[in-house]
């Protein structure tokens, strides 16, 4: 790489209109519109024309254990992260003042199983895009390393055509990416099948600048990082490839691929390791041991062709 890009996104022009009524915040900019529910602390929908997204990304920290993960007892040692995203209480929703950047909404959660605060800071921008900043603060807690720090969302299967600017075309991970060159790559989510003899994590792409998922009307959901991010877009969820604390004699034929697409947008995922498969950890630079993590990306729907 000759030069690192500047990832700060230029603020687009656009007229953002806000309509606040009881717990609902309706917003519109051009033909993009959406609704945020203050009581639930989440978006009820987000759409452009006929292209409509139900839910925005939600926190997720787990991955289907690889063979090396089993070797170093990740399924039990890191097990608290398997469901840490589930049992979260909504602590506070703060709707800020609309400024020239847009409308800020901050949603504070408590991940109750581990007693850790987790914050989603949204900025509904003037062009109708939504900037998401996800932050976790584990200060003062004794917690195992994170398998991943990220979010995921479910999209209807019609968003099958994936285009991204990042490392590809083969799957790659923080510690196995030197052969995956930066570029604009394309594939179909439905063609990404689990390639290993025993179901496990697969399909990740590191150093992603943006990813677009096109539907049949050639509109795309676009995720643009404010820093490089990892993504995968698969017709299967981690839960469906996770046998639990022990391996369960599973094979690729035991997987049922959904029509829906699970899109992961992660700041980082644990490396793969490989020094051994009977105890060795991924090397330290490829593990998530920090007390705090935070990252940002912008979601929008575009109708321009690929």
């Amino acid at each position: 790489m000759l030069q690192e890009a500047d990832f700060a996104l230029s603020q687009n022009s656009g007229e953002l209109s806000i309509d606040e009524e009881d717990e609902k915040i309706q917003f519109q900019s051009g033909d993009i519109s959406g609704e945020f529910n203050k009581k639930r602390g989440s978006f009820s929908y987000y759409k452009k024309g006929d292209t409509r997204i139900g839910r925005l990304p939600e926190p997720y920290f787990w991955r289907a254990p690889t063979d090396n993960d089993f070797g170093n007892h990740m399924p039990s040692n890191l097990g608290v992260w398997r469901t840490a995203h589930v049992n979260k209480s909504l602590e506070e929703v703060v709707v800020g003042e609309q400024s020239k950047e847009g409308l800020p909404i901050t949603v504070k959660y408590m991940l109750k199983d581990i007693g850790v605060p987790y914050t989603l800071a949204y900025l509904i921008r003037n062009d109708g895009s939504i900037q998401v900043t996800s932050s976790i603060d584990m200060s003062g807690k004794t917690l195992p390393e994170l398998p991943r720090f990220g979010m995921r969302m479910t999209l209807p299967g019609q968003f099958d055509q994936v285009s991204y600017y990042g490392r590809g075309p083969e799957e790659n991970y923080s510690d196995r990416k030197t052969a995956s060159f930066l570029g604009i790559w394309e594939h179909k989510a439905s063609e990404q099948k689990m390639p290993y003899i025993r179901p496990q994590e697969y399909g990740n792409h590191t150093d992603t600048r943006w990813v677009k998922l096109f539907n049949e009307s050639e509109e795309s959901l676009v995720i643009t990082g404010l820093q490089p991010f990892d993504f995968s877009a698969l017709n299967i969820r981690a839960e469906d490839m996770d046998p639990g604390l022990t391996k369960k004699q599973q094979h690729p034929t035991d997987l049922s691929y959904s029509n829906d697409i699970t899109l992961h947008i992660d700041l980082l995922q644990r490396g793969l390791g490989g020094d051994t498969s009977w105890g060795a950890y991924p090397h330290r630079p490829y593990r998530l041991h920090d007390e705090k993590y935070s990252y940002s990306f912008v979601i929008t729907i575009e109708s321009d062709k690929k």
Binding site: D67, N68, Q200, Y202, G274, D275
Partner: peptide, 15 residues
């Protein structure tokens, strides 16, 4: 023997 290629593996091979 090195870089145990079991499943999704071969991390830090460049190292």
């Amino acid at each position: 023997e090195y870089s145990h290629a079991m499943g999704n593996s071969n991390g830090n091979f460049q190292e």
